[in-house]
Design a protein around this nucleic acid. Sequence first.
DNA 1: GTGAAAGCGCTAACAG
DNA 2: CTGTTAGCGCTTTCAC
Lengths: 344, 344
Amino acid sequence: MPSGGSGPTSIERPRAPVKITDVATLAGVAPMTVSRVINTPDRVSPATSAKVQAAIDALGYVPNLIAGGLSSRRSRMVAAVVPTIAHPMFAGVIQTFSDALRLAGYEVMLSLSGYGENDKEALLRALLGRRPDALLIAGAAHTPGAIQMITEAHIPVVEIWDVSSHPIDMLVGFDHEDVGREVAQFFLNKGHTRFATISASDPRAVQRTQTFATCARQAGGMVVGEAIVKAPSTIMAGRTALASMLPDLTERTAMFCSSDLLAFGAITEARKRGLAVPERLSVCGFGNFELSAASEPPATTVSVEGAEAGQIAAGFVLQRLTGNGPRQEGQWHVPFHILERATT
Amino acid sequence: MPSGGSGPTSIERPRAPVKITDVATLAGVAPMTVSRVINTPDRVSPATSAKVQAAIDALGYVPNLIAGGLSSRRSRMVAAVVPTIAHPMFAGVIQTFSDALRLAGYEVMLSLSGYGENDKEALLRALLGRRPDALLIAGAAHTPGAIQMITEAHIPVVEIWDVSSHPIDMLVGFDHEDVGREVAQFFLNKGHTRFATISASDPRAVQRTQTFATCARQAGGMVVGEAIVKAPSTIMAGRTALASMLPDLTERTAMFCSSDLLAFGAITEARKRGLAVPERLSVCGFGNFELSAASEPPATTVSVEGAEAGQIAAGFVLQRLTGNGPRQEGQWHVPFHILERATT
DNA sequence: GTGAAAGCGCTAACAG
DNA sequence: CTGTTAGCGCTTTCAC
């Protein structure tokens, strides 16, 4: 029941949301001029602009972006899907990505998918139905249905986290197998011969730790334990896994955990059980959580430049959106490196 | 340059997004019937429904919710604004809230505001411009401009985190002063006479710790240190604060930290410096992070039922949205309690 | 620099 | 149970 009922009071305080025509009427201009004041101010004379701005302020006008989006076919919104933002890399990516896009006038609509792939298609449907101008999505392992939906949306897509031989569109990620290899090499260089892993059950975590184990074996090492715990990683899971692995940790062992949370749990439990870290058990985590830097002893970890990844991803999206140059294939390898601290 | 170039192939693979009329034509029905199949399936005959569904699948139709929203004036979207979801209470609230609303057919659009209040009005404008059907917002301390914008949106609003004497609409929160009081009482009952606090600089954290200090003094206790660190809380800040406070910790002291992160940092630094926990320094944190339960020694903390808060908030919103009964004032005190573990 | 007309893709309201 | 008509609030396009 718009503009119904009660007579006008002395002060304008509309009950139904103010619309562009209300502002136009008050300012004595056409709706189109109001639109210009908001979207392309430089195409309006200063005098008119001031009048309109006054009307906007007086009425507290908040433009309906739904209507604008329908008309212009641009939602000025970018959808982002990540499993969690508890992980520093994702948190970093999202933060930087959001900031960069907001600066360019886009809002980021963030959805957390969790680690279960159960209703990801439903989530995607709900997201794509809102016609985002672009999509940022974590993980390259999508169902065929999901890939089809994404493809047919005809919007720029950036996949993060994984490298992939078949990116949907653009990609910002790293090779999880490279990480495993590099950590293995790190330990091998230190003369380790016995190895162990604790991994969360998600595919990328498994990739990192399995490659680590494979490399260790290939170099003549012995893998004395490979625990897998249900994703997402927790400190407690790390403690439990280490406890159950204890009988096999009879000699000096080098351990790679798929997350700093698992690593911290393993370190905590090891020290409680009297296993000296790093003398008897060397531990390297993954993710560079603040916990690893700030706990005692500070823990060695693999750091991935999430902030940089977000910046690059935003650049990719914006370049496509602002349409400078042709559709450019973007693929960016996010750098990672081992931060050696006191647990190795 | 949309719809350019390459000629049609044998298989239908539309370059522009499929719309409701495309589906209607293929199914041989009116657009309205397609709409009904999607939104009110029980009002369509099974035969028609099947035909339409087949057309939807064949074309990979994803309804444009922007258009639907404009027409129906319901976006089926709820905006949520929290400073961070690194805090278990917020994470819990958002998770439960999202799940409950998704079940009812609403998507949650999550925005992280951070702890700076700088551009909150701009954020709100961008959010409200998308015409969410309801708003969940953390913190009761809003600027007048923000309050006016929210009010004039004429949508259900739930504030979380804080109790307030002047809620905008509905409220799910707790009294931070109550927390301070209760923790003080907890320590007093154990016979403590010397107290200290480490707090993040955000208003609610300060409220908790200051009330703690006040209560301790009123009971005849002595407050030997009150550190304030810049929000958001970090482990390292807790370590640094404790280190600087060390000279004043000459006797058995009870410490309340505004976050488990600060508490963990304080405990870590204390033990490193040879201050026995809990014998010389008793520490209670806030938030019930996993870290507190899983670290060694397990840390005493204040647990707030975030998941329950999210459930209640979702209930408030849905009741208003599905419109059973009159506009009901909702105010809910989220329960909290002290989890005593090994650091006190 | 400003305005008028048309329409974005969908659904409310009302027929049949 | 299904179809028709009108219009959501804005921006595109074209005119002046």
